[in-house]
């Protein structure tokens, strides 16, 4: 009975993930056009082309930069906020609720808020102007490097909501008696955190890092609202480029081959990372 019930779930997964994935894998070897029914088999042409595709390489590089920045930023930020917010009074509970709010909002909403802040005539530049720091005003979304960091900042800000919650739960699962014993032995706050709490938070670290990583490697919505991949396609992410190839340049076949390369990258990066971090996890 249990086997039958469980296979229902597996059947759904097969129907909506595995079969479409196999179909998409096949499309990667064709010249499928979104407007036409028929496609020609082109063998490895798409894969050969993507090896030399500089726009794709740039999109992958952008994705890598965003992923590294957001993963480090969101986890450091989350860890710090978690330590700061690890209190018991109801004030702390209210503060903790507020920190999670960005994660509750959609990427479209969050990105729009930041467009009003970061655009040239936006809030940040006007505040800088009003306190006499006009020289620091910048086109935050209009210069390629700055724009990429702006996107990273927005994603990091939103993900901090998530990581903080995870780290708070991890911190609160550290047994009080361990910390109390260390305190009696004369260990300071930093030492208690670095020697006891942090090593015991391995499991939370694995979850937080993995989820942020997987989310940013597939980033699309934030980029669509903040920069549309510009200026000059220079803030395109891999998924953004994939969709542009598919639906603007009519090359669904090529887009599918890119998708599989991306899948391979996401899969291997997360597999390596998870196994590395698992090894560090300390079990009680």
């Amino acid at each position: 009975m249990l086997d039958v019930a469980a296979s229902g779930g597996l059947l759904l997964f097969t129907t909506f993930v595995l079969i479409p994935l196999a179909m998409s894998f096949y499309v990667g070897f064709t010249d499928q056009n979104p407007l036409l029914k028929d496609a020609n088999f082109v063998g490895l042409d798409n894969y050969r082309e993507l090896i030399g595709d500089e726009s794709l390489h740039r999109a992958l590089k952008n994705t890598a930069k965003l992923t590294i920045a957001a993963t480090i930023g969101a986890n450091l930020g989350g860890l710090v906020l978690a330590v700061v917010l690890d209190g018991t009074s109801r004030y702390y509970r209210v503060l903790r609720t507020m920190v999670f709010v960005p994660q509750v909002l959609s990427a479209v909403v969050v990105s729009f808020i930041f467009v009003t802040i970061l655009s040239n005539r936006g809030i940040l530049n006007s505040v800088l102007g009003s306190i006499g720091l006009e020289s620091l005003a910048e086109p935050w979304l209009g210069k390629p490097d700055l724009a990429l960091w702006s996107i990273a900042t927005v994603v990091t800000w939103q993900m901090i909501g998530f990581t903080t919650v995870v780290y708070l739960a991890a911190l609160q699962s550290v047994p009080d008696d361990l910390l109390e014993a260390a305190r009696i032995d004369g260990a300071g706050a930093w030492k208690r955190f670095s020697k006891i709490s942090f090593p015991l938070m391995g499991q939370g670290l694995t979850i937080a890092v993995t989820i942020v990583l997987i989310t940013t490697l597939r980033l699309y919505d934030h980029v669509a609202v903040l920069t549309s991949g510009g200026p000059g396609f220079r803030t395109e992410t891999a998924v953004f480029y994939l969709l542009r190839m598919g639906f603007t340049n009519n090359r669904i076949g090529y887009a599918s081959s890119i998708a599989f390369v991306l899948l391979l990258i996401i899969g291997s990066v997360s597999a390596i990372l998870v196994s590395l971090m698992r090894r560090r996890e300390v079990q009680l």
Binding site: V17, P20, L21, S24, R218, V239, I252, L263, I266
Partner: peptide, 8 residues
Amino acid sequence: PPHVVFIP
């Protein structure tokens, strides 16, 4: 990436 499986 869910975008990969939409069309199929």
